[in-house]
């Protein structure tokens, strides 16, 4: 590791420890590191957005290539900024209307296809067979119906409906449990990576 890398990694190690210090209690070191992250991230993406979007979509097409139709989205973008004025904020509703209209038009059909039709198809179209795969399909169908019944409020949850609803909540709980377990795994992975970084830094510093 070169001296430059050692210094940079030293700063990173110090900031890591600053963030970890919050585990003991809130303190000025933690606050400093937290605000530094927010500031650096904001500065970073502002400049990146300028170079990847404003230059490509406004400056070059309009002022260099003479593609004047790019003025329309540029003006719509400028209109968004009127939200900061109480007097003129109504103007921003026009670009927002465009944005919502285009967004809805593009996404509604494809979202229905992805999240509803394909999922429904996968749930009901798999054949029931007399083996473990068939049992798996049966469990999936019962679990889906029970979870849906739990959220069906147009009828009182009594009798068989209540049994299905109760089973539905267990299905949902299992789902949350799996999510929680995986979340713990993810969080431990973050800790492991930081500890590995600190260990490697100490080894490099002391030439171990």
């Amino acid at each position: 590791m070169t001296t430059g890398q050692l210094i940079l990694n030293g700063i990173a190690a110090f900031l890591t420890l600053c963030i970890f210090s919050f585990l003991y209690k809130d303190n000025p070191f933690y606050k400093f590191a937290e605000r530094l992250v927010a500031g650096v991230a904001t500065g970073y993406w502002t400049i990146l957005l300028y170079h990847t979007n404003f230059t490509d979509k406004v400056i070059e097409p309009i002022f260099i290539n003479g593609q004047y139709h790019y003025i329309i989205p540029a003006v719509l973008g400028i209109m968004m900024w009127t939200r900061f004025s109480r007097k003129w904020s109504w103007i921003s509703r026009y670009p927002i209307a465009f944005y919502i209209g285009i967004g809805s038009g593009v996404s509604i059909t494809v979202y229905l296809y992805t999240y509803l039709f394909k999922q429904l198809q996968a749930t009901i179209s798999t054949p029931l067979t007399l083996d473990l795969a068939g049992l798996n399909v049966l469990i999936i169908v019962i679990a889906v119906l029970s979870a849906l019944i739990y959220f069906f409020f147009s009828s009182a949850h009594k009798g068989i409906f209540n049994v299905a609803s109760r089973f539905g909540i267990y299905v949902i709980m299992i789902g949350f449990g799996a999510g929680f377990g995986l979340t713990v795994m993810g969080r431990v992975a973050l800790l492991v990576q930081r500890i590995i970084f600190l260990r490697d830094y100490i080894v490099a510093l002391f030439g171990g």
Binding site: Q119, I140, G179, L182, G186
Partner: peptide, 17 residues
């Protein structure tokens, strides 16, 4: 995907998406 996200995406695996 990250561990936090995995359980949400198994449904897309079983549907073949």
């Amino acid at each position: 995907v990250t561990g936090v996200m995995v359980s949400d995406y198994y449904t897309f695996l079983s549907s073949g998406q």
